[in-house]
């Protein structure tokens, strides 16, 4: 095998400016995979799915597909989707690959969401490192902002055009990328509810539940938030000082829970992205937290460490309509 073939996870950005350029990359990627009997997942825009479907003709029914906007609303769900696809389709042959065309969604995202998705793109290099996924991430130069396109060359080690690849000199290893792109969290409001945690998990859960009720979260949504805050506390009990301050408040679009341990550390910026596996890990609770919260921010430094959870507030009409506790 060549060096490229021996590499585990392959992660490439493809910047395209026309349908022809998109197909110039995607068609060989898919066709070669099908010819080798490798699983292929297409997660791209409806327009691009249509282009590929037409180009593949009868072979189109051999590929798995998803509208990219629905393959994980949250970054952690998206990562789980990729890891799950790998787990379910990994080929028995060591040389074979699982091919995923994964077009990120940028349109309409807030700047915080863009940053989070870029950090996820970077994190894939670490989180999927042990898989033999070959992932190409298309970026549409006609619609995606130039700075986002430029950043794709910092989050992907290689850029591909057609069948040609080149190394991205701008590529940063994921830990460095996160460090360079992370801003300080805003202070909690003075009106935040505060609970000093010193190991009483039952008391912490009760406090969280009472506050959640006060914010109008009921039933399953309150239950899940209580679990999430508890899991953060449990993680810090095992990895921090065991004492932390919980602050809860409501803001537009979120009930926020901030857990700060002044003597704790979190070294892994992608904590909670790895799927629970064969053996239980003490990070499995944080995987759960990332699945059910809209956003999870981790900070670690001289002032200790903090985990800030953003759960949809009671005003989330979409959840009221779907009746689901969290949008899966």
């Amino acid at each position: 095998m060549t060096d490229q073939e021996q590499a585990r996870f392959i992660h490439q950005t493809c910047i395209y400016g026309s349908d022809e350029q998109f197909l110039g990359m995607a068609l060989p990627f898919v066709s070669d995979g099908l010819a080798r009997g490798e699983p292929v997942l297409l997660a791209t825009t409806p327009a691009n799915l249509g282009l590929l479907g037409d180009a593949l003709g009868s072979r189109a029914t051999e590929v798995d597909y998803a509208e990219t906007a629905y393959l994980g609303r949250r970054t952690a769900q998206r990562v789980a989707a990729f890891a799950s696809y790998w787990a379910r389709h990994r080929p028995p042959i060591p040389e074979a690959r699982v091919r995923i065309l994964a077009e990120p969604v940028w349109a309409g995202r807030s700047s915080k969401q863009v940053a989070e998705w870029q950090q996820m793109e970077s994190g894939l290099n670490t989180v999927l490192a042990d898989t033999r996924i070959w992932m190409i991430c298309p970026y549409d130069a006609r619609t995606v902002a130039p700075d986002i396109i430029a950043t794709s060359r910092r989050t992907h080690p290689v850029a591909v055009t057609g069948r040609e690849t080149e190394a991205c000199e701008e590529f940063l290893d994921p830990a460095s990328f996160v460090e360079a792109s992370t801003e300080a969290l805003p202070e909690a409001p003075a009106t935040a509810a505060v609970y000093e945690f010193g190991g009483d998990l039952g008391g912490l859960r009760q406090f969280t539940r009472t506050r959640a009720d006060g914010y109008g979260l009921t039933g399953e949504r309150a239950d899940l938030l209580v679990i999430a805050v508890g899991e953060v506390a449990e993680y810090l009990m095992q990895h921090g000082s065991g004492r932390a301050t919980l602050r809860m408040w409501e803001e537009f679009e979120a009930v926020v829970c901030d857990v700060h341990d002044p003597a704790g550390r979190i070294d892994d910026p992608f904590l909670g992205y790895r799927l629970p596996g064969e053996a239980a890990k003490d990070t499995d609770g944080l995987w759960f937290v990332r699945q059910i919260c809209d956003r999870v921010e981790l900070r670690s430094g001289d002032a200790g460490c903090a985990v800030r959870l953003f759960a949809p507030s009671a005003r989330a009409e979409e959840l009221a309509l779907s009746g689901e506790a969290f949008t899966r």
Binding site: Y65, A66, Y70, G72, A80
Partner: peptide, 9 residues
Amino acid sequence: APTAPRKRS
């Protein structure tokens, strides 16, 4: 799977 790609959106 919570986020398994579904065949049909």
